[in-house]
Design a protein around this nucleic acid. Structure first.
Lengths: 342, 342
DNA sequence: ATGAAAGCGCTAACAG
DNA sequence: CTGTTAGCGCTTTCAT
């Protein structure tokens, strides 16, 4: 492949006057090879600058010892945690991982899925984007029994395993906390309700209001992408309501931070005038003033759980097919932005 | 590789009563194949659910049409921009990319380099970590003439191409700006000066002080990792100095944000008592109060530049070897945290 | 415009 | 414990 011709096991074999099979066996720690031979082989391999040809090995063995990971976007501490969780477990099990970033584009997600398919990964962990409705691009994997685990996407895919948090419960926790702080008119800023995770959070949120006999009118619900612009607009819209809401549950920390900034800029106090709860537990929550109450999104645990299940399935331990949803615990982190009372 | 046996070009050939070579040619758009045949082949391929076997193809062709990207850590908007820049250019040129995350571990960086080497990527773009001193693990690539581009690592590697910003100039810009705002006693918080990029920023910073006949004593220089804890400690140390510094240049936005929070908590006003300039242009700079003056780290441009050069080299256009350093423009973004005057 | 045949580097029966 | 042999799926001369 490059200028200095690659050395192969044949070269090593010739050099040592043994057969290629012996070299192969030695390199793969086959017990049926004498210590002496093994040692010689390893030394010669290093000396000659041998590198294994994974193409040939994978072609022969019909497996890649690699799992693919598709993420919708990389830029959040949550994602980093997920990836590091996956990496820890996979590496330990002898698998490599290939990360594909969809960069917030549904089209690229499809391309990434195809690419992983052609690269013949042994398994896939996918984090579909919020605007990914059809999951057809994952069909090739399921068709060939290549194990596939979704993160955060409980509904929609019947046959596949998902790792999720209890989103409804999270919404409920957030709302209950705000109610406990004395809020009576609580608004909700979230992304598209088309996506299960947001729909469920909203559902739990509404349930908590109901529990406490609090009403909710549609003007208190805003759906918008968690961008700076949209979040600022949303905050302004909430401020213009009369009476103004005295609580706000936002399903994204960055959006929550923008809202808080917008409120403060207009002389509205947080949490006194309006208490705010975010979602994700991004670093940013600790840096803004007031610090942000939020729901911890346990990325590392989710990544580890997904990877562990995939590994077990690939190794024939535990049958993934019987489990369809794995729920990881998430909890509320209370900081200043929601504390109307002490 | 999976339960339903994969269909190969032989299967397609048999089905169509042509030879495998013809199928191969058709699939690769070889002009030497009749339109009719090509069409038939494509249809049959789709109908039979054919997927190319990249292992076999790569084994045969001795190239992977893939480039590897090693990043030190994923969790910053800067990194996301770099990756998206690389992806845009590489995909357009028909190359896939594999992302390897070193998760802030030098050991993992070594493992990642090895993994890419064994996967026989055609080229590498690497973002070494600050504690990566020896670059030996990249030697296998250079030894085999596999093109290698570093981001952000001008010194240390003689033979390889680097994409950088003018770090000295950035340090100078930051200091000049603070001086222009009336600062006379300017502190500097940065990561290890072992790393060129920090050393250069410091050098430029000092140069600007010198230009303006300002003195600088060692107590004004703090080196610490840009973690929350360390940054808070650094801020406290700066506050305790007498006289207290009236300006601060931090080489990381997150660290700068923590400093500002710490100052405000102790009743020190920003920028009135101390003006602050950060580095990176992370989202966070726009969300804290006061908003953060910073140096824009042009990730997308850097990624695109690196990828474009790599692609040209791989395609034989332009000889990368003649260029050793590519400098991308970075600039100062002025916000509230540094504006002592209007 | 198509076919036959060889070979990329490796592993896995099978035989010794 | 080691060697022989065949073949994974593809591309690529060289023929035709």
């Amino acid at each position: 492949m490059e200028n200095p011709k690659d050395v192969t096991i044949y070269d090593i074999a010739k050099n040592l006057n043994v057969s290629p099979s012996t070299v192969s066996r030695a390199l793969n720690d086959d017990p049926n090879v004498s210590k002496k031979t093994r040692k010689k082989v390893f030394e010669t391999a290093v000396r000659m600058g041998y590198r294994i040809n994974l193409f040939a090995k994978n072609l022969r063995q019909q497996q890649s010892l690699t799992i693919g990971v598709i993420v919708y976007e990389l830029n959040s501490s949550f994602m980093t945690l997920v990836l590091s969780g996956i990496e820890n477990v996979a590496n330990e099990a002898g698998y490599g991982i290939i990360i594909m970033d969809s960069a917030q584009s549904a089209a690229r997600e499809v391309a990434n899925a195809q690419s992983l398919f052609h690269r013949r990964v042994d398994g896939v962990i996918a984090f579909p984007g919020p605007d990914t409705k059809a999951l057809d691009h994952f069909k090739p994997f399921t068709d060939r029994n290549i194990p596939l685990i979704f993160l955060d996407h409980a509904g929609g895919v019947q046959e596949s395993t998902c790792v999720v948090i209890d989103n409804a419960m999270c919404g409920q926790m957030a709302a209950r906390h705000l109610i406990g702080q004395g809020c009576r008119r609580i608004a909700h800023l979230t992304s598209t309700l088309q996506h299960d995770i947001y729909a469920l959070r909203y559902k739990g949120f509404r349930a908590a209001l109901m529990e406490n006999d609090l009403s909710f009118d549609e003007s208190l619900l805003i759906t918008a992408p968690p961008t700076e612009e949209d979040s600022e607009l949303a905050a302004k819209k909430l401020m213009s309501l009369r009476p103004m809401p005295d609580g706000l549950f936002v399903t994204n920390d960055l959006a929550a931070a923008v809202c808080i900034r917008t409120f403060l800029d207009q002389g509205i106090r947080v949490p006194q005038d309006i208490a705010v709860v975010g979602f994700n537990n991004d670093v940013i929550g600790k840096l803004i003033k007031p610090t942000l109450t939020t729901i911890n999104y346990p990325g590392r645990e989710m990544g580890e759980t997904a990877a562990r299940n995939l590994m077990n399935h690939l190794k024939g331990v535990g049958n993934m097919n019987s489990i369809s949803i794995l729920t990881v615990r998430a909890d509320l982190i209370i900081r200043q932005s929601s504390l109307k009372k002490g």
